[in-house]
């Protein structure tokens, strides 16, 4: 089992954060782009025992707040709140099913970005442009949900995750 608060995982989150700042904005499909750090939080919720998405989200949120341009603290709150819900929700789902993971990723992205959008409206309410932002939010959530099919197996290989099966999963 991976502890999120271990040096390799913290370094990995930092590495993904640098990718999000420098490379992923250049690889876009329409307005959709990959957000590796968010994908990693979803991965931690589904792949690692012990509900580790929340500490991962807190760490990712703090990093994103410090190098983003949203109001400081908004990413941390949005990510942590969504991750608590995702941690709870992932325990109740078939965690090996790719469509379930994709759907959970979609809702995680949509809820986190919606919270960021709501909180960012405090900083510049006069220029909200909500419909355009919601359209981008939807595209980003959809694209990243589709990417879980590629990203999760890669991460699984990288971390050499042999996810412990639950007793009921042994009798499938």
């Amino acid at each position: 089992m991976h502890r999120v608060l271990s040096a390799p995982v913290i370094l990995f989150i930092f590495f993904l954060h640098i990718l999000d700042l420098t490379i992923t904005p250049l690889i876009t499909l329409g307005s959709a782009r990959v957000i590796f750090v968010y994908l990693f939080v979803v991965y931690a919720a589904f792949q690692w025992e012990g509900q580790q998405a929340t500490p991962a989200a807190l760490m990712a949120g703090l990093l994103r707040d410090l190098s983003g341009s949203e109001i400081l603290g908004s990413e941390t709150l949005a990510l942590t709140a969504s991750a608590i819900f995702l941690d709870w929700f992932s325990q109740k789902l078939d965690r090996r099913s790719a469509p379930v993971r994709a759907a959970a990723a979609f809702f995680f992205f949509a809820s986190t970005l919606s919270l960021v959008l709501i909180l960012s409206a405090f900083s510049s309410p006069e220029n909200a442009q909500v419909p355009a932002k919601i359209s981008i939010l939807f595209q980003v959530s959809l694209a990243n949900a589709a990417l879980t099919a590629v990203f999760f197996p890669l991460l699984s290989q990288w971390f050499r995750d042999d996810r412990p099966l639950r007793q009921y999963e042994l009798f499938r």
Partner: peptide
Amino acid sequence: YFLAFSILPLLFILKNPGITPHTQ
């Protein structure tokens, strides 16, 4: 605890909004 900790920066910043760009 995690949720409470995540709200703290935001509450602090809402009280001192000018600090955001400098910190970032």
